[in-house]
Design a protein around this nucleic acid. Structure first.
Lengths: 128, 128
DNA sequence: TAAAAATTACGAAATCTTTCGTATGTAATT
DNA sequence: AATTACATACGAAAGATTTCGTAATTTTTA
């Protein structure tokens, strides 16, 4: 992904990742459960996203149906890399420490993380 | 911190955290090692930051000297919380997994993280 | 001391994003 | 068939951020 999505674009992608391909109407309804926003506003942003190819749309039926072109993991990774670079001067461990420090994480999730780390240490023992 | 700093503001804060209290001239010189930007642009942004109280300035001498009011950790935490909420639907472990997955981290840093996790598990055994 | 250089203040243009009104057309309802 | 509801397209206003030109002032240099 070249472009970092804007906040509004991200909101819409979240909804589409969660609830599958949707019409503008559906997206706007879900969006309005979070905050008040007009229908044509949502329409406009989704049209722009389609132009940018952040979404594809099926124009077969009267109500177009939109799908995100990127997977959530790709966008998460892009954004996290940007934060890593601009906020943590590239230090991944500082980012992780900040993310974990003084916060509670469910036991199972913590276990998942612990296992991932173990696997990484086994694999890349001593390596950068 | 109430407000998320803009990208430009963040760039400047990074420089000030790294290189201590500086004049606009110094900040602009350092900034120009990364990208081309005019002196008055940097000045303007730093003046706005002072208004917002992201920076304090010593106006004793002709060249004002600016200092960040927030520590880097505070801003890192604020921004990471925002990303957590808007990009990872609040799942801290997903964020951490994404930050670690498929990336290399120096052995010592990894060890640091491992220790932190161990400490957290000991302290909050079984708790949220 | 006069000219040049450096600094702050300020306003406004340029750019990016969000917002929505209006026009237009199609489907559903009466 | 006429009216109402619903959809897209489009342009432009509103808002936020970045950019920089210019004026006014002070310091430095020649």
């Amino acid at each position: 992904m070249i472009l970092k999505p804007t906040e509004s674009e991200l909101e819409i992608m979240q909804i589409l990742w969660e609830c599958g391909p949707l019409t503008v109407r559906k997206v706007n309804d879900l969006l309005n459960q979070q905050r008040r926003v007009g229908y044509t506003t949502t329409l406009k942003i989704m049209q722009i996203m389609a132009e940018k190819e952040l979404l594809t749309r099926d124009t077969e039926h009267r109500s177009h149906v939109y799908t995100p072109t990127l997977q959530s993991e790709e966008v998460q990774s892009t954004i996290l890399d940007h934060v890593l670079k601009t906020v943590f001067k590239g230090s991944r461990s500082n980012l992780v420490m900040q993310a974990l420090g003084n916060h509670s994480v469910a036991k199972e999730e913590m276990e998942e993380i612990r296992l991932l780390i173990k696997k990484m240490e086994d694999k890349e023992d001593g390596i950068l």
